[in-house]
């Protein structure tokens, strides 16, 4: 399956959902700064990969899928769970990109800050997308869907 754009998906979101993600993102960044100030960069650094926003994102993915099915007269609960599970599988693959970002940044930041940011961003995109392509090629996306469908 090839990735594609679906701009219509933006219309599915309610305005308050965007506000919630903005506020959660802001709070996560402030809290990470406070933790670094209080307990140092080692502990603070861990929280740069805290999945605080993921809780809201996965819940919204599930909600949007269920809403779509409700409009068609179906419960949509299973489809909602399946959509959130696929989102979580994608986040696990994206985690490899985040790992590449962190390693690249830690090696380069003491040499050149601008190069560190650019190279780390490229590393994130490359590793995340390569992991996703490999996962697709292994047919694991279909396995997630079939495992979800097999349940009673």
């Amino acid at each position: 399956m090839r990735p594609k754009l679906s701009l219509g998906a933006l219309k599915e979101g309610r305005w308050y959902e965007y506000v919630v993600r903005f506020v959660l993102g802001g709070i996560a960044t402030v809290v990470t700064g406070l933790i670094s100030s209080r307990w140092g960069p080692s502990i603070g650094g861990l929280f740069l990969a805290l999945p605080a926003i993921f809780c809201a994102s996965a819940t919204l993915v599930e909600k949007h899928e269920m809403r779509r099915k409700h409009e068609a007269g179906l419960s949509g609960r299973r489809r909602g769970e399946e959509a959130a599970a696929l989102d979580a599988a994608g986040a696990a693959l994206g985690g490899f990109g985040l790992l590449a970002f962190a390693v690249t940044f830690s090696f380069l930041v003491e040499r050149n800050v601008a190069v560190a940011f650019a190279a780390s961003f490229v590393a994130w995109a490359t590793f995340a997308m390569t992991a996703w392509w490999a996962w697709q090629a292994a047919g694991s996306g279909a396995k997630v869907r079939s495992t979800s469908a097999e349940r009673p």
Binding site: A9, E12, T32, F54, A88, A89, G90, G94, W132
Partner: peptide, 25 residues
């Protein structure tokens, strides 16, 4: 992530370095 399909590909952006970029910046 919202405008990308399939869902698993959009999920990659659930692990994007968003808080990291802001904090490290």
């Amino acid at each position: 992530g919202d405008v990308l399909r399939p869902k698993s590909f959009a999920g990659l952006f659930g692990a994007a370095p968003s808080v990291a970029l802001a904090t490290l910046g």
